[in-house]
Amino acid sequence: MPLDKLVCGFLETTVNKLQQLDSSALQRRKQLNGTIIGVALKEINKPLYFVISTQQIDILSEYEGQADCFIRLNISALKELQNNHQLTHLIKTEQLEVEGDIQIVQRFARLLTEMDIDWEEHLSVIIGDILAHKLYYEFKQCRKNASLQIKKIEKQSGEYITEELKIAPGPLEVVYFCEQVNDIKKQVDALEKRLQQGFASSNKLTRNIR
């Protein structure tokens, strides 16, 4: 199967490129040096083996020995791995199965997800300090603008729905509506009281007649 070799090769190159950019990765790999971790996605059922050494991470599609730790998980659980507190939750809900030391899994998840990459720094090696700073600044500005825009859009579409379409009520309308509901509730309570009093006295009456 040359395809899975290609996939493995591609994955390995990508992962190690990221590892090289991450200033804390070496320290994390040291903690796991010499560990072999098998990972299988339940949906695909084709395990990959991660061989971790101080030099790099090697990814194999076959390993005939016993891995130090083997995990099986749902694709949807991949995202949650970042969050180390989630691990026990994932295990409880059977989205993640672990054979071996849970601490290894925690370290491994941290190695792959908590990357500390200074993009500006790396960019500057390629294109020079000033340009990198500018680009990175622009990028951050873009991102800020984008999130501002998104908030604005959210607000505007909210207004549009309430004012123009009248699908949803505005805040004052809601308060007014609630007050009306309260009034009615009071009136209903009063009515109920009076009704009960009425019943009570009519009961007395009928008993006296007999």
Partner: peptide, 16 residues
Amino acid sequence: HRVWKRFTIDCSGIRK
């Protein structure tokens, strides 16, 4: 040649 070598490793049954 990298893919050929990767295939070789996978067929090797090499272990710790």
